[in-house]
Design a binder for these strands. Structure first.
Lengths: 191, 191, 191, 191
DNA sequence: AATGAATGAGTGTTCATTCAT
DNA sequence: GATGAATGAACACTCATTCAT
């Protein structure tokens, strides 16, 4: 009576992301996912055409969640410095709330089994940040350089830091995260 | 006169690194490697005990090559700024010369099938850079912060940039690389 | 109504014993068993962890069947002569009903892939006959000699005879079997 | 200077019989034989067309050696009792001198990879004993029964006993062997 | 003659996917 | 809808056999 319909589907996705993040797509078997989701192996195929479909659905869903997360409380009217801080903090917050999602996204974002659509979803996420940077460049707050390069620097740095958080190489104290955020900003701000 | 001795072994390693970099360890089958190396499947087992052994040998070899590359012409007596530039340029140079190696290293460095030895080889590479950063901190050239975090920022940024070079999102013009290097330095230098 | 449950498992065991008896463990491939059992190769692994597990399960099952067969209608209170006749006849009867089982047991009973448990099951079967012989010796019906030697003589003779029955070198007429039984008894009875 | 030509061939045969006896035909690989014989793997194919050929040559050679062994000092003019004792003792002697041969013969004599010729060689060995038994029957020293059955009993018993000697279940003391020989004779002698 | 590196068909085993229940 | 037994193609790995040296 209490359980809604799409529970099983969600159970599958929830189980899958943990396994994909920890063992990779090819290191994860469908029976593994079924067991972790407490679901029959055949049930997975009622919701997803095949394993590739599952990973693509999951990928798109998570990237969209991350994007939405970024938008929440977005300080449109503040300085680019403020916007940057917001983005950094929201990504960090997202990674705390869903400890596997960011690692899953990062470790699967250039895999060959992603569909065109999945790639587009990821690209628009990146594009979103690109846009912020471009505005920052116009306003003279950010260095003038190929935008993709700036994204790369910041994105690479953040993802690596969060990877290290996940594996407890770093503690995620507020103070440390604040310093790291500042480092990232220093990388791209105009001097 | 027709062929050197250790050709087959090298052929296998050369074929394997490309496939591992592009498809991951689990996404790469032994027959794929055999075909790419133009070698019988059984031949691979004359040189490597099993697939895990192959990936470990390859990983250690490539990390060591990268380390040696870093050392060449290392400006021991220069400023940390100079040393940092050297490291950046050498990594870049390494990535140009062996376009799959860095991606292979980065995407496999935390996989569970790596042996203790492989992990140690990678750790000493990281440690080497750590040491430089620590000296920089003592000399007041680099910001005071947990060394691992600084490494994470710089390493993450560089690897991401080189990934983008590989996939032609960025051109690797000297001018651009110089700017990127400066960005990375700005992230961690003391202001 | 169409089929019982544990059919597949039994199909596999039934197919395997024939092949193991005729070709030996190492001469029998899993695909051979699958084909003979009219079952997919993968199905075998739903019921048995691996080939060694299959041969051990089969071995223990057959030795236990043989033991039970021996017990049925066992003339506990009769003379050792009667008991010996019973054992001989029951082994013969067993071999008639399951023409591969005894050969399978005999040709695999000292193989290195048998588990400790399998060896124990076989040993208790042998021990059972040993006990009868020892009682016979105490009662003066059987010659005084190392029990193992007596077992060896009788067991070796019986197994060889049944081997020859299987390959139609001998017909298994009641008269002949009766004579053979007497020969075996004569080998060990006290004169 | 000292080494004759057919040394390598003999080395291979000597190594092969040990392995075949201990691990069976299918459990023995050609490289195993090569290593044990201290010979290159390819060398085996200079002397034997293939593995099956090797095992057949070996089988025939060993059966013939056993047959010759039986003949040596054969007491043609003695009683069948004497002849039986001779046969038993010579087989025992053969098994002592070449500890793997009898086991090899027995465990391979009904394998499907034996050629027609191998089977014939083995059959003539059996036939030889059959003839003795038949004479014994005519002279009234041996029970009247299908000769093959009598052979089976005695052959089975002897082989089993020698198997147990090999695996140290029995000690091979002269006294014990004498008793066993008598048991075997009692099995088939006319009373 | 002798070698052993090389091969690829064949082995034991796994796993994405189907389908009768 | 949900299941999990069943499948067979594909995997990692082995080994009888060949052949350049």
């Amino acid at each position: 009576m209490t359980e809604q319909k799409p529970t099983k589907r969600q159970d599958i996705l929830d189980a899958a992301i943990v396994l994909f993040a920890e063992r990779g797509y090819n290191g994860t078997t469908v029976p593994m996912i079924a067991e972790a989701a407490k679901v029959g192996a055949g049930t997975i195929y009622r919701y997803f055409d095949h394993k590739e479909n599952l990973v693509n659905v999951l990928f798109q869903e998570k990237v969209k969640q991350l994007s939405h997360h970024l938008m929440q409380g977005y300080p449109n009217d503040s300085s680019i410095r403020e916007q940057f801080r917001h983005i950094f903090q929201r990504i960090h917050h997202f990674a705390i709330g869903d400890s596997h999602a960011l690692h899953f996204i990062d470790s699967h974002c250039s895999e060959i089994f992603l569909t065109e659509e999945s790639n587009q979803v990821f690209d628009s996420f990146i594009q979103y940040i690109c846009d912020v940077i471009e505005v920052g460049q116009k306003r003279g707050e950010i260095i003038l350089m190929q935008t993709e390069a700036l994204i790369g620097i910041v994105y690479g740095a953040i993802v690596q830091i969060l990877k290290m958080l996940r594996s407890d190489v770093l503690d995620g104290s507020e103070h440390l995260m604040k310093s790291i955020e500042e480092c990232c900003w220093n990388a791209i701000r105009s001097h």
